[in-house]
Design a binder for these strands. Structure first.
Lengths: 222, 222
DNA sequence: TAGATTGTTAATCGATTAACAATC
DNA sequence: TAGATTGTTAATCGATTAACAATC
């Protein structure tokens, strides 16, 4: 049964399912049960079945799921067939890393152009993607009906660029800057790749673990 | 009152508070209330006060929070004073982007070395960080008591490297590969930077929004 | 003092887990 | 058919929000 509003948590698990199914497929498996998936992913079988059931009935009682067709169903749920158009704004180190190594097409996204202020890069192309002047950014966005802006500019200008793109009607921003840009654009879709946030969480968990171990030791020596 | 076990959601919001407070501090503000923060961050004042109260009493009734001291308290919670030692494994495009542009020190982490199989890079140094041969990786990890491995190797070898590092007693992995490495090491701390997962979520939200708008239009034309 | 805002307790809301009938 | 496993409903658990006494 299709749910009306699907929770964030569910959405964030879907790409993990997709990757795991790709892996199982590559191994030549063609059948998998929620119990097997649960072991691989560290989730409960219940949760996995609940998650899938948000989008349809992909399995078969007594059998489980067909790896191939479940994989394709999830890919469709995630919009892999939509061919959303993306542009890259800023080709510093992280922008170039994305252009050179990240396969947008594999995930159904079309990276159509990149923009930068660096005159030496303008007019060139990288991995088949042309690099244009930042001055052309807004014209291009409107004319080509860009869906997604991959934001990889310096933090200092991130909000300005984001505001302009939003006012031009862009749907979503994949945000690689260190700055939160969601507020106050409640309609804009923002996905953050906040490196430092992730590292800070990591740091917290190490500290928590160390303190837990220290406390255990203290109790042991009582 | 210090809680025993702090939920994941709370931890993930702490770095956002930290960044916002840095921003407010840079603007010269020295006082902020939970209501003001809630407007800036798109959260409820209740939630913000609840989050802070997991770690202590940082505010003052009738006044709010001192920006500086709240910022520092949160930095401590996140372990910014611990100087955890990190190594970078793999200096491909993403690895180099991290070495050149990501300021580990700003977040209290010490990047002490990088490792790669590329002979032309071995022996050089980048941004003050020496690059060693992959053959020295495991010896170094043990000898220097490395806390964190930043994993930026090809997906194909990710699990092997992660397993070896884990068995050598590393605490945490900051995972930039496309592969899940948490299972079956239940003790290992893993923070994932799964680019494709984030992009897939983005793609889903665009599709959801488009479908919602299409449905609205259909109703409007009934 | 009066106004403001915290920290915390209680109420609500939502997500996860357990259980089981349906059925392949 | 018997065994296995789904999809879904109900029960539990946890997180968010609301409310308010404490107090600066």
């Amino acid at each position: 049964m299709k749910k009306v509003k699907i929770s964030n948590n569910v959405i964030r698990r879907m790409p993990r399912y997709l990757r795991k199914l790709d892996e199982l497929r590559a191994k030549g498996l063609n059948r998998v049960s929620s119990a097997e998936l649960s072991r691989e992913l560290g989730l409960t079988p219940s949760q996995i079945r609940q998650d899938f059931s948000c989008f349809g009935e992909f399995g078969q009682q007594g059998y489980g799921y067909n790896v191939d067709s479940l994989r394709d169903s999830i890919a469709l749920v995630l919009g892999a067939d939509r061919a959303y158009k993306a542009i890259l704004v800023g080709i510093g180190n992280i922008g170039r890393a994305l252009m050179d190594n990240f396969c947008f097409a594999e995930w159904g996204i079309e990276l159509v152009a990149a923009f930068d202020v660096d005159v030496s890069a303008i007019g060139t192309s990288r991995n088949g993607v042309p690099v244009y002047s930042a001055e052309e950014l807004y014209d291009y966005t409107v004319k080509k009906q860009v869906d997604i802006a991959v934001l990889a500019v310096p933090g200092a200008v991130a909000r300005d660029v984001a505001r302009n793109l939003t006012e031009l009607g862009i749907d979503a921003i994949w945000n690689f800057t260190n700055v939160d840009i969601k507020e106050p654009y409640s309609d804009l879709i923002v996905e953050n790749m906040h490196f430092s946030d992730s590292l800070m969480a990591l740091s917290y968990y190490i500290t928590e673990r160390n303190e837990l171990m220290a406390r255990r030791e203290a109790v042991g020596n009582e």
